[in-house]
Nucleic acid binder design. Structure first.
Length: 293
DNA sequence: AAGCGAACCTGGCTGC
DNA sequence: TGCAGCCAGGTTCGCT
């Protein structure tokens, strides 16, 4: 489900409910998600206060007051929803209603501010772990992680360097989280269309030319943050499960130019092409072979 | 070594 | 209506 814009949407929804609050109680309804949950997961969270709530690529990071970080990944079908109890605002009288439990509500955080935060994940490709903040950067999950596409690091020169010498298709290189971390199938397809680049082109063909990053690399570096920022502003894309934490839908899917639009006319002004679907490394790619070269 | 396909899971949709 | 088959926003593993 969630690529960077969806995860950022979730982060923004959860932040005000989480930062400053403590975990009053945590319900763990099964031993594992994608991986076994950490030893004593519930005990390690209960009583802790959340001091910051951030994101790195597609990971949510809740900094706890004991120096640990609760790391959460939503996999393909993970989502959070927030329920506010009637007692919110009057400390000591929350009732955290249990009546609303749905199938696949695997983890529930009952917060000291009266908010109930439920993690639902039918496919269980998501996972949670607890890592000391000081060890986060060297943790296997994060050590080899690529650059943050909404940070300041992304520009044509960086793209050229990252892709230099790669024979893999651009599509695969953009999905490789060790290069740029946070893009997924939707936004890779959309970015490539905006940049006018074929998903089948070898990534290495964007490398530097005569000491300067190629025009193509610069265009790609420009459109990636553009499409991600527009998607964040739209609350992400709702294909099936993604919701903002208050239940409202994302609406960026209405602005897709290629994703899931096989057979439709290309929307690029003046282009007479038709959106095609091909399969690359086992995943659907949508693109216009007329204007994407 | 890089790159590709399969695997991990459940559910929704399509077509027979 | 029923059921088989296919597909899905991610990541990792293992083979070539």
């Amino acid at each position: 489900m969630p690529e960077l814009p969806e995860v950022e949407t979730v982060r923004r929804g959860l932040e005000p409910a989480m930062v400053g609050a403590r975990f009053s109680s945590v319900e763990q309804n099964r031993p594992d998600l994608r991986f076994p949950l950490p030893e004593r997961f519930v005990e390690r969270l209960q009583g802790r206060r959340i001091v910051a709530f951030g994101r790195r690529a597609k990971y949510l990071l809740a900094d706890l007051d004991d120096g640990n970080v609760l790391v959460m990944h939503l996999g393909m079908s993970g989502s959070f929803r927030i329920e506010r109890s009637a007692g919110a605002g009057t400390p000591g009288h929350f009732h955290h209603p249990r009546s609303s439990a749905l199938a696949h509500d695997h983890i529930v955080f009952n917060m000291s501010n009266g908010v109930r935060i439920l993690y639902n994940d039918p496919r269980r490709f998501g996972f949670m772990l607890v890592v000391p903040r000081a060890e986060l950067d060297t943790h296997p999950l994060f050590a080899g992680m690529g650059i943050e596409p909404l940070g300041n690091e992304l520009d044509g020169a960086v793209v050229a360097r990252l892709f230099a010498g790669k024979s893999a298709p651009l599509k695969a290189a953009l999905l490789d989280q060790r290069l740029i971390a946070g893009l997924g199938n939707i936004y890779v397809c959309e970015a490539l269309h905006r940049a006018g680049l074929s998903p089948r082109r070898a990534a290495g063909t964007l490398a530097r030319r005569n000491g300067a990053p190629s025009e193509r690399a610069q265009r790609l570096a420009e459109v990636i943050p553009q499409v991600l920022n527009e998607a964040v502003a739209a609350g992400g894309s709702t294909l099936r499960d993604h919701r903002q934490t208050d239940g409202t839908l994302g609406y960026f899917q209405h602005r897709f130019h290629v994703y899931d639009r096989e057979g439709e006319p290309c929307q690029r002004p003046g282009c007479r092409g038709t959106i095609r679907r091909i399969v690359q490394s086992g995943r659907s790619t949508f693109f216009c072979s007329v204007c994407q070269k």
